[in-house]
Structure formats: structure tokens, C-alpha cells
Design a protein around this nucleic acid. Structure first.
Length: 878
RNA sequence: GCGGGCGUGGUGGAACGGUAGACACGCUGGAUUUAGGUUCCAGUGGCGCAAGCCAUGGGGGUUCAAGUCCCUCCGCCCGCACCA
């Protein structure tokens, strides 16, 4: 090489993401790469990828970026694998924040919502997601919620809708129903008034009718995370037990002959020391009627809020009503009836019998109020004459004692025996009880789907005739008063009864927003249909093959969607059993938090981080250089100001960098930490890929050139290529996207090393294969860069990576000639040996024992046992 | 309170029960560059001169072999039915 003729080194080529990303987005769009028909051709292998649709809060956040990037990797990968992929997007657009905006800033909820959607759509489009925007809708579109009203009426006809009373949080100052979120430490978030419980008549969907099936069918969901199935199973909460009727000793005062309890431990009936009812129980009301102190206690319980967490975390308190109940089997023995704040009216019968010896809550309650504690279950090995309970209840199995006819029986046998006896004497029955409650969908709010019902004085609750659907929300609403604007609207609710024509009142409650999100996946299959869904479309596309979203939806949203699918099947709208065949739950996106010297939270862009040689990090406030403290890594939230704006990241580094970093950082099911350093590293890697391609442009063989035979550097590169194909494919199939990223890093390193051997035989073809494979394997993660690289490798070809099939690994190139075996002595690594694949075991043992380090470790002792795991390890036991 | 999960170097993490720390970030040293938020090379769990020993939140167990399986304790996170 003659230095004088060597061209002056050029500036390293830079990948211009800002120009490339919109260009490829336009190209995908122009060629309709992601469009699919409502009804796919019968021979197509369909694949429906769906991410949980966002609430249009105003801007996308990093959680969205993570969610939609994960879904896009799956969508692009499955498309390359030859599937017809439906990948739609929409908006979960009803909800409280829009009403809050209306009250705080005077903006109409509809305008606020649709403006937010426009913003967020543009942000999502900049991410280069392979979405089919033609299917987009928002749940606040009358074209959507009108169909939801039709579903409600169909469910009603099918007996799946009921009107029942239930308790709500009531703000007595604002005169408004509060969401649990709006109750802060027992007070209304705006008025500060002590919240009360209030009973309202509301609409319910009969999800409990499907409780057995919702539980049973969890077994069929083999592509759901076990923990989600477990949580659902516990939520549905099947338990076997007994209903026991206790006779009240003073029926006249109590206003009832008996009180019924549900128990899962009828075997401990002889250890009873009290009976407790919920504050909402009729017996509590009877006590209040004759004792103002009881009334006061109930009023206190009513100030506790309706959330189960609040109730169960509260200090256990009770009030002795003075009523007594007789023991079912011991004549002359009776127990006090208490009102207790930890008994839930919604579960079982709203009454329990307390056996403090064998239930922790009962133990705590009995200890507090000095009620007797009698053990009736003897732990295995304990002696009945000397056994004493320690400072806690004994809740495990054992042998029953102190219990009359149950003495000597094991717990399960005792349960069967006592139920037999209860049934024989007519005092109770064995029952299966479910924790799951019916789904109350009524919300006293404006920004939701109107429930299509008209209340008539003579006809009762009458369905809105289908011809009058959709029942559209009025536009002219007044948010200056508290309460539901639909209720104070001057005209909207005044209608004629569809049955008798008399003046009637429109239902002013709207649907829980969980209803909106319980069937949107079905609507996506035919978003323009005149019916809620088109049978041919849902029959072809459902179930969703891969659903992706946050673990926070593990129970409610997923359970409600499973219920809706069953209800829609019962009403003939679709035929599948389950909505989501595969489920993936992603972790949260977190960030460090920062505080200034004055204790004020600081945004990441307000602080300057420096790193000392020992790795210690410290922070100062930009500009002032005042010290700042680096706080915990926690979920991004506005209140902690530890948020990073995806739009700013995409502007600075490009969508591919953001996508690559969010995938590379850690396994997607785990919480991840967003770091500036990590993003910068991902950005450098995008540039590195681009450089690898640009540096090779004139050293590549033409497309289709034959590969050289032999075992030189070209073969080594080809082996790396094909092993990477196999490894990345496996990683993508397993949602191990961070591992796929690591393999691509290794591959890029291998390609970089091969640059030094450009002259070796067959290298031109091997490098073309490697670089084209690099582009195609990284395309699900970095789709724009992949197109840009591929176009540079095949100038003028017009081929889009988005339209290419997934690369296939050549099995011949995956084979290894030798393997490295770890040689252990007593499980401790002492040496490694390199042996040909398939070497005879005897030879391997001989080689292993000949190793110097192995000899030293053996110390001359005879080998008792030799374990050989082919391709992995040899363990010698002495 | 109840239900579910997670815990591995300075950091994120990898690891069919089989060589713990792949890959990356960060840091250190060197080279290139007028310059560097560039690129390239080398090093990087702890202790030890070394042989080696110690390390996967703490403690215990099963196994030839445990980050992985079992028990227990601790810490953190998610859900709890009207936030989405």
C-alpha cells in the first residue's frame, strides 16, 4: 500500500435518523405494509397482536413506549415469519381525568380528550410502530359506545344484567359520589369532608354466573403467566364451607329468628366465642334501633370508605349488640353478637362466627375485647391435656378436640362430619362460596357511556329501543356544580316512556370505563361494522394471539374481558371461549428521583450528574451548582418529577435508539430503569451498525454470489451469522428481547473483527450475508435503521426489510466440531478440557483425570463416581 | 390486613439443576484526532505475592452438583372491586 495514494480518511459516516425515520415511515405507509382485511383469506395464518390501548392523558410516557415497542417487535417478527398480522391501536377515552380538566380548567371533556388523542397519535407515529391506523377508534366515539349500549341491552335480555343496591363513597359537602382514588385518608379530596358510605340502586353485570367457568378455564390459558392465573384464581376465590344458621335467643328484640353465617371452618364450631356481623347487616340495624351507641358505632364504620384495603387495614373494632345466639349443638350455651368493622357485607352472608383459637383475625379481636379463646384443633404430636395456644391462633391442620362428636377426627373429616350433622338437624348446609362479586357498572358521571335505560313510574326500568341507539351524551353540560352534569342537564333526561308514552326519566348513570375496555379487542376486527362486531371478522381474528400490557391489569381488566367474551358468546356475537390466548405482562419504567437542598423534587434535566473514579455518583443543580441528592429509583410519576419525555428522547436520538434501549436494558417482565447513559450507549450502537455497513460497501460480493468452501475466516463469520439467527430467533420466541439484543451486539463484534480479514477467501459473500442478516435480525427492534442499512447494501433494489421473510439458520453451520467441558471434583471447577463432539466417555474421563489441577484436587484418593453431562460437565466424586 | 411477585459485580442484567457474572453501561490505562458526548485496543466481582479461598438479600435443607428446587426470615414492588 502506497501512502501517497491512500485517500485522506473520510469523516466516519453518520446515520441521519432524523431524515431516515420519517422517510421509512412514509414508505411503509405508502406500500400499506401493515394493512390486513377484516376477514382474512382462509389459507392465511392469522396473528393478532394487541397492546393495552392507552388512556389519552395528553402525552405518551415511557410505559407506553415500552408497551408498544414490545408489541411492535412481536408484530414485525410474526409478520416476517409469514403470518398475516393484525396490529391495531385505539384510545380508552372515557374517564375521570377529562371531567377533572373540565372542572379545573373549563375545557369540555370531549375537546380535552380529542386534543390529547391528536397529540398522542402523532407521538406514537414517530415511534415507527407497525400499526394499522385505519382501525383506530376511541371509546368515547358515539360509533363505539352506541354499540356498547346494544351489547348492554343484549346482555339484559339474556339475563346478565341486574339492578341491585350497593354502597358508594359519598362526599356530604360536595354532594357527590367519590371514586376510591378521590378518598384521601377518609376525606373527600376536594372538600376535605369526612366521607360517608351511601347506598344507591345501581346496574350490575352478572359476572358471578360465570365464576366456575372463569376459574376452570384458567387451565386452558397455557400462554398466560402463572402468577396472573394464580391472582385471578384467588380473586374468584372458590371456597368450600358451610352456611350455619344460629338461633337468636331474643328474637323479638332482634327482629329476626336467626342469623346465618358462612364459614370455611365449620370444624371449629365448638371453639366459637362470638358471632360478628357487618355494620351494614340487618342485625346491626336492629341493634341501632334500640341503642344509640350501636348507631354511633355503625356511623363510624360508615366513615371508613368502601375499599377493602382500607377496611382490612383499619384497627379491628367492635360493638357488643347485647343480642345472643345459641350454639347449634350445645344446649344452653350462647354467644354474644358483635358488630365488627372487619366483617365485609359483600362476602358470604355478612356475618361470621368467631373462633379465636384458629383464626388470626378472630384471635386479635377476642384478645382486644377479652372474649374466651378455646382451642379445638390439636397440632400433630401435641398432647390434649397440656396443649396451650401461644400468642397467636393455630391455623394449620390437626386433630379436633374439646368438640363433642367431632373429637378425634382430622380437620377434613371433621368438616364433612359437622356439615352432615348441620344438614340432618336443619341448622345449615355445606356450600361452595365465591369471593367474586357481581360487577357494579353504574357511575354517577358525565364522561362515560350512557346506560341505555329509561325509568318509567308505571313500567319500571325500560330498555331504550334499539332504533334510538346510540344514546348520545349531550354536548352542553355545566361543570360548575358538583355532582353528575347529566343529572342537572335541563332537558336531556326528560323523555317519554318507550312502552306507555308517559313522561319518564332517562338513566343518568354512565358505564364504568372497564366496560369500554372489555370488548375493544373484538371491535378492532371490524371497526366500522353496523353491529358491535362482524361475526366473520371475529371468528377469523379472535382470540388475540398475543396481548401485552402492565401487570397492574392482572385481575380486573383481564377478568372483565374474559367475562365479556363469555357474555358475547351467550348473546351470539362471537364464538371463542377466551379473548386472549397469549398474555405478556411488562414491568414498569422507573427513574432516579432528585431533590434540591430545599427538599423540592427536581426533574432529571435540572440536575448535572458526575461520576467519581470509584463509581460514586453525585448531583448538582444545573446553573446554580447547588448540591442535590440522588434519591431512590422508582416508578416515573409527575409528583416525583422523575419523568423523561419520550418525545424529547426521540427528537434527540431517534425512535430506534429509544426502542433499542428500552428493549436492551432488562427482561421485559421486570421493572426497568431509564438512564441517560443507557440511551447514549444505544445511540452509539445504532451508529456502529451503520458504520459496519458503510465501511463494507465496496468489499462485498454481489447479491447471490456463491459461498467459498473450506474452514477459513469466511466460514467462521458464516457460523457466527447462522448461530446468531438461531439465538435471536429463540430469544424473540421467548420474549427474551434483552438477550436478543446481546446476541446482536456479539454479532456486530464478530462482523467488526472480520473487517480485518477482508482479503480472505469468500469474505465478500460472507460479509454481505452477515450484514444483510444483521439488518434483518435487528429490524423488529430498530426498523428504520434496518431499512436504511439494507437499502445501502442493495442500492436501488427497492426491497423493504418489512416485507422480507425471517432469515433461516443453516443447520450445517450451527454444528460445532469441539466442545469445552468443565471438569469438577466434588462439584468444584478444577479444569476445562476441549474434546471433539461425540468423543467416547471413557476417553473423556481419562483426559479429565489426567489434568494436573484435577490430580491435585483428587489428592490421590480413588474416584468413587464419575458423572458426565455431555457437552457440559464432568464431575468426579471421591 | 389479604393476594401476587421480585432480590446476582459500581450499574442493568446472562446462566436446559451442570464452568456464576454472557452482553451492555460505567470506570481505569493506552492509541487516533485541532477538538470530542468520536472511534479503536486493553483491563475491570472481593481477598491473596501465589496456590487458592470467598461471593447470587440473611439463615437452614435436598443433590454428585443449587442463582435455579424446598423451608424460614428480611427488604422492595404490584393489586384489593368507583384511577386507568
Amino acid at each position: 500500500m502506497n501512502d501517497s495514494t491512500k485517500p485522506t480518511p473520510k469523516e466516519p459516516p453518520r446515520y441521519d435518523f432524523a431524515a431516515a425515520e420519517p422517510r421509512w415511515q412514509t414508505e411503509w405507509d405508502r406500500r400499506a405494509c401493515f394493512a390486513v382485511p377484516d376477514v382474512p383469506p382462509p389459507e392465511a395464518k392469522k396473528y393478532y397482536v394487541l397492546e393495552m390501548f392507552p388512556y389519552p392523558s395528553g402525552k405518551i410516557h415511557m410505559g407506553h413506549v415500552r408497551n408498544y415497542t414490545l408489541g411492535d417487535v412481536v408484530a414485525r417478527y410474526k409478520r416476517a415469519r409469514g403470518h398475516l398480522v393484525m396490529h391495531p391501536m385505539g384510545w380508552d377515552a372515557f374517564g375521570l381525568p377529562a371531567e377533572n380538566a373540565a372542572r379545573e380548567r373549563g375545557i369540555h371533556p370531549g375537546k380535552w380528550t380529542y386534543d390529547n388523542i391528536a397529540n398522542m397519535r402523532a407521538e406514537l407515529q414517530r415511534m415507527g410502530l407497525s400499526l394499522e391506523w385505519a382501525r383506530e377508534f376511541a371509546t368515547c366515539d358515539a360509533a363505539y359506545y352506541g354499540k356498547q349500549q346494544k351489547l348492554f341491552l343484549d346482555f339484559w335480555k339474556a339475563g346478565l344484567v341486574e339492578r341491585k343496591e350497593s354502597w358508594v363513597n359519598w362526599d356530604p359537602v360536595d354532594g357527590t359520589v367519590l371514586a376510591n382514588e378521590q378518598v384521601i385518608d377518609g376525606r373527600g379530596w376536594r372538600s376535605g369532608a369526612l366521607v360517608e358510605k351511601k347506598k344507591l340502586s345501581q346496574w350490575f353485570l352478572s359476572i358471578t354466573k360465570y365464576a366456575p367457568d372463569l376459574l376452570e378455564a384458567l387451565n386452558t390459558l397455557d400462554r398466560w403467566p402463572e402468577r396472573v392465573k394464580l391472582m385471578q384464581s384467588n380473586w374468584i376465590g372458590r371456597s368450600e364451607g358451610a352456611r350455619v344458621r344460629f338461633r337468636l335467643t331474643d328474637a323479638a328484640a332482634a327482629g329476626a329468628e336467626e342469623v346465618e353465617v358462612f364459614t370455611t371452618r365449620p370444624d371449629t364450631l365448638f371453639g366459637m366465642s362470638f358471632l360478628a356481623v357487618a355494620a351494614e347487616h340487618p342485625l346491626a340495624a336492629a341493634a341501632a334501633a334500640r341503642d344509640p351507641r350501636a348507631a354511633e358505632f355503625i356511623a363510624e364504620c360508615r366513615r371508613m370508605g368502601t375499599s377493602e384495603a382500607a377496611i382490612e387495614q383499619a384497627e379491628k373494632r367492635g360493638f357488643d349488640t347485647g343480642f345472643r345466639v345459641a350454639h347449634p349443638f350445645v344446649p344452653g350455651v350462647s354467644f354474644p353478637v358483635w358488630i365488627a368493622n372487619f366483617v365485609l357485607m359483600e362476602y358470604g352472608t355478612g356475618a361470621i362466627f368467631g373462633c379465636p383459637g384458629h383464626d388470626e383475625r378472630d384471635f386479635e379481636f377476642a384478645t382486644k375485647y377479652a372474649l374466651p379463646i378455646l382451642p379445638v384443633v390439636l397440632p400433630p404430636g401435641a398432647d390434649a391435656t397440656t396443649f396451650r395456644l401461644g400468642g397467636e391462633a393455630y391455623t394449620d391442620d390437626g386433630t379436633i378436640f374439646n368438640s363433642g362428636f367431632l373429637d378425634g377426627l382430622a380437620v377434613p373429616a371433621a368438616k364433612r362430619r359437622v356439615i352432615e350433622e348441620l344438614e340432618k338437624t336443619g341448622q345449615g348446609t355445606g356450600v361452595v362460596n365465591w369471593r367474586l362479586r357481581d360487577w357494579g357498572i353504574s357511575r354517577q358521571r358525565y364522561w362515560g357511556c350512557p346506560i341505555p335505560v329509561i325509568h318509567c313510574e308505571s313500567c319500571g326500568a325500560v330498555p331504550v329501543p334499539e332504533a334510538q341507539l346510540p344514546v348520545v351524551l349531550p354536548e352542553d353540560v355545566d361543570f360548575s356544580k358538583p355532582g353528575n352534569p347529566l343529572d342537572h342537564h335541563p332537558t336531556w333526561k326528560h323523555v317519554a316512556c318507550p312502552q306507555c308514552g308517559a313522561p319518564a326519566r332517562r338513566e343518568t348513570d354512565t358505564c364504568d370505563t372497564f366496560v369500554d375496555s372489555s370488548w375493544y379487542f373484538a371491535r378492532f376486527c371490524s371497526p366500522g361494522a353496523a353491529e358491535p362486531v362482524t361475526r366473520a371478522a371475529v371468528d377469523a381474528w379472535l382470540p388475540v394471539d398475543q396481548y401485552i400490557g402492565g401487570i397492574e391489569h392482572a385481575i380486573l381488566h383481564l377478568l372483565y374481558s374474559r367475562f365479556f367474551t363469555r357474555a358475547m358468546k351467550a348473546t351470539g356475537h362471537l364464538a371463542v371461549e377466551e379473548p386472549f390466548a397469549g398474555l405478556f405482562t411488562q414491568g414498569m419504567v422507573q427513574h432516579e428521583s432528585y431533590k434540591g437542598a430545599d427538599g423540592r423534587w427536581l426533574y432529571p434535566e435540572e440536575v448535572e450528574i458526575s461520576v467519581a473514579a470509584d463509581g460514586t455518583r453525585s448531583a448538582v443543580v444545573k446553573g446554580s451548582n447547588e448540591p442535590a441528592t440522588i434519591g431512590r429509583v422508582e416508578a416515573m410519576s409527575k409528583s416525583k418529577r422523575n419523568t423523561v419525555d419520550p418525545g424529547a428522547i426521540i427528537g434527540k436520538y431517534g425512535a430506534d435508539t429509544a426502542r433499542w434501549f428500552i428493549l436492551s436494558d432488562n427482561p421485559p417482565e421486570r421493572d426497568m430503569e431509564w438512564t441517560e447513559a443507557g440511551v447514549a450507549g444505544a445511540f452509539r450502537f445504532t451508529q456502529r451498525i451503520w458504520r459496519l455497513a458503510a465501511n463494507s460497501a465496496d468489499a462485498l460480493a454481489p447479491v447471490g454470489a456463491a459461498h467459498a468452501a473450506g474452514a477459513g475466516p469466511a466460514r467462521k463469520l458464516r457460523q457466527a451469522t447462522h448461530r446468531t439467527i438461531a439465538a435471536v430467533t429463540e430469544a424473540l420466541e421467548n420474549f427474551a428481547f434483552n438477550v436478543a439484543v446481546a446476541r446482536i451486539h456479539e454479532f456486530a463484534n464478530a462482523i467488526g473483527e472480520a473487517e480485518g480479514q477482508a482479503a480472505a477467501e469468500g469474505m465478500g459473500a460472507a460479509r454481505r450475508e452477515a450484514l444483510e442478516t444483521l439488518a434483518r435480525l435487528s429490524a423488529p427492534m430498530m426498523p428504520h435503521l434496518a431499512e436504511e442499512v439494507f437499502a445501502a447494501l442493495r442500492p436501488g433494489s427497492g426491497t423493504l426489510v418489512a416485507e422480507l421473510p425471517w432469515p433461516e439458520a443453516d443447520p450445517e453451520l450451527l454444528k460445532a466440531e469441539t466442545v469445552t467441558l468443565a471438569i469438577q471434583v466434588l462439584g468444584k471447577l478444577r479444569a476445562t478440557i476441549e474434546v471433539p463432539v461425540g468423543a467416547p466417555e471413557a476417553e473423556i474421563f481419562a483426559l479429565a483425570e489426567a489434568e494436573e489441577n484435577v490430580q491435585r484436587a483428587l489428592g490421590g484418593k480413588p474416584v468413587k463416581k464419575r458423572i458426565h453431562v455431555p457437552g457440559r460437565v464432568v464431575n468426579l466424586v471421591v
